[in-house]
Amino acid sequence: MKVIKELWQSLIDALIGLGSVVRFLLRMLMVTPGALLRFDLIVQQIFNSGALSLVIIMLAGLFVGMVLGLQGFTLLERFGSEGSLGVAAAIGLVKELGPVITALLFAGRAGTALASELGLMRATDQLSAMEMMAVDPIKRVVAPRFLGGVIAMPLLAAIFSVIGLYGAQLVGVQIMGVDSGSFWSQMRAGVDLRDIREGIVKSLIFGVACSLIAVYEGYYATPTAAGVGRATTRTVVTSAVVVLFLDYLLTSAFL
């Protein structure tokens, strides 16, 4: 009986949490038109979330692509269809690995930075000081960070996929000796615009989810050292679970 009661209570708590995230999102969307007018602030956040994540995204993309090339080659070789390595790697990267791994890395690199930055701004009264200067912190600080993340994510995912493809080509064509012509031509023939669209939509939605979780956790962090630490951890954990769950939903929706 007690277990059921506790489960029920945690379900209620989860729903309340979800409700407050949605309210936060709506409040942010309401100030978005105003925030968009100050595009320089958003550009700065695209730099912080996007450009500063580039190295890790490119490195991860390269290695993932190389593994994909190696595994794909050994598998396809069994059926004598190693020429299809290009299309297999491209579809895998564009539709799945690109958006998902980029989102996970984004949560770890940019999401934690956003959450701890906002949490520390709260803890050091910077957000209250802005309110006292009649400046809405949601509009001036939170919305640009959120929008910067949303814009940066699809770009990062695209870069991840391109580098990944290069990695697959490096291993498959340069090392394992797959014919370069069939690698590229089968890829061009096999990858549809629909696949690209699926990748873009996914990374956009992951961008919204990861950025929203990060700014929400940071903005409402308990203003102590432990509180900011907890908010940072929760950002990564929640983002990872939400991204993988959404990935399943989106994949089944696109089928």
């Binding site: 050091t124 009264d125 000081a129």
Partner: peptide, 14 residues
């Protein structure tokens, strides 16, 4: 609030 100024305990500089 534009007619008020407030000095926070630790300054609260951005």
């Amino acid at each position: 609030r534009r007619r008020m100024g407030m000095l926070f305990q630790n300054g609260a500089l951005l």
